[in-house]
């Protein structure tokens, strides 16, 4: 990587760093139980839960597996499963 003058970098470039590799537990979303309230989207510190049309998608490229979405989900639609390494 060629360095810049003064180490000034373009914003939004952290998308190039996949924090999903940090994950020990994987949140699994059960759309059957999901009430589409959006809490999981809101509480994710890693902006890793997205809404696509009618479906919620967990972005495993970035999800660190903190479990916050699962703990906060009022419908118990998210369960944490050990990652197979």
């Amino acid at each position: 990587m060629e360095i810049t003058i003064g180490a000034v970098v373009q914003g939004g470039t952290s998308l190039g760093y996949k924090t999903g590799t940090w994950r020990d537990e994987r949140p699994i979303l059960d759309m059957e139980q999901c009430k589409a309230c959006g809490v999981c989207v809101s509480v994710c510190p890693d902006s890793a839960v997205h809404v696509k049309g009618e479906t919620y998608i967990i972005d495993y490229d970035y999800c660190k597996g903190c479990g916050l979405c699962g703990y906060e989900c009022p419908a118990d639609a998210i369960s944490m499963v050990k990652e197979e390494k």
Binding site: G12, G16, T19, G38, V41, S47, V51, D61, C66
Partner: peptide, 26 residues
């Protein structure tokens, strides 16, 4: 919260930062 299209495209603070798991600050 109503269903809406959200992804990193709409975020001003995007994924890939290196905060600890479950960081309140991020």
């Amino acid at each position: 919260m109503s269903t809406q299209n959200l992804s990193n495209d709409q975020e001003l603070f995007v994924s890939g930062h290196r905060a600890c798991h479950g960081c309140g600050m991020s």
